[in-house]
Design a protein around this nucleic acid. Structure first.
Lengths: 182, 182
DNA sequence: GTCTATAATCAGATAGAC
DNA sequence: GTCTATCTGATTATAGAC
């Protein structure tokens, strides 16, 4: 699972080969196929694992903290995962992985739970005036999700001028405070 | 070129097959290979074409307008291209297309010119106080480039609740003004 | 559960006629 | 320049022994 996770993060589903996974784990490819019926199921298992970790982390966030702070923490966690090379790339529109994931009960349930939790924080943050009320909550949700695959993170990482923590705070600021002067 | 462009936008380089390109154009695959030595070169030609269109549009933006307005216009144009299905997906880190593009003189020259132009507007906008001075210009540049592959655009488009113009203004606002209330 | 060996398929690329 | 036919290699998946 860990190897699959890394490979999905490095190259994405299409470019990842089952041979690579087997080689990295150190077993024969056929052995892998005894555990997972297809490449899609193999990848889906890794995606489910990440989703579970997200559920655990988001679930442990304080109910007492301001909703905006919880949102920021959630996004920070997500970006840290990506910078560490542990965030599997989202399946693109036409990938065969997409269909498998959408029919995966555990994955979809996790996605729903995470979305509901973030959605509640978003509405609470708009209600308490910390988050702008001019955006539809769903647009805010998408914008936060998109930080999980933001190429700005890897571009800045490649530049080598900033630590992971600096990169996270930088992107977090552009996301919540915007590029304009305040 | 147009067919390649669409396919790159729809599925990305790896998932696009030369057979599809040939079928969509209505000629045999071998005929395609008389014009382009490889799949990479085929895709690179399409990328060069887009880069030229960007150079033309950015070059025509007013020298008299405030730099921030030029930046916003540039990002609007880019997002409109993506929403229209004409923005080829960026080659991912490990794609073989990346190497071909990086050794393509015309593409790299175009990228440099565009980056220089946007970079100058960014610095001018920071100088005139419209853009926040707390971000390194390179981070701002990356953030603007990233709008070309922002999944929020297609998510909102899939939702069917907003027109392309509304989507563009929405994402433009989150980008420049941020999610926080002002 | 793991292996070697192999099937089956797909996709990039080429040969060579017209 | 275009075509049909084919080559070549990579990749998903399976057979069947241990």
């Amino acid at each position: 699972m860990q190897a699959v996770n890394r490979l999905l993060a490095e190259k994405g589903f299409d470019a990842m080969t089952v041979d690579e996974v087997a080689a990295r784990v150190g077993i024969a490819k056929a052995s892998l196929y005894k555990h997972f019926p297809s490449k899609e199921d193999l990848a889906a298992a890794a995606m489910v694992r990440v989703m579970r970790r997200a559920q655990e982390f988001f679930g442990a966030l304080s109910g007492a903290a301001p909703p905006l702070e919880n949102l920021r923490s959630a996004v920070r966690w997500t970006m840290a995962l990506k910078l560490a090379g542990d965030m599997p790339a989202l399946p693109s529109q036409n990938s065969s992985l997409r269909a498998t994931l959408m029919s995966n009960r555990e994955y979809m349930d996790g996605l729903m739970e995470v979305s509901d939790r973030l959605g509640a924080w978003i509405e609470a943050a708009q209600a308490d005036g910390s988050l702008s009320r001019k955006y539809p909550p769903i647009a805010v949700l998408y914008t936060l999700y998109a930080r999980a695959c933001d190429p700005v993170l890897e571009f800045l990482q490649m530049g080598g001028q900033h630590s992971p923590e600096e990169i996270i705070e930088l992107v977090l600021a552009t996301c919540f405070e915007g590029l304009n002067a305040r």
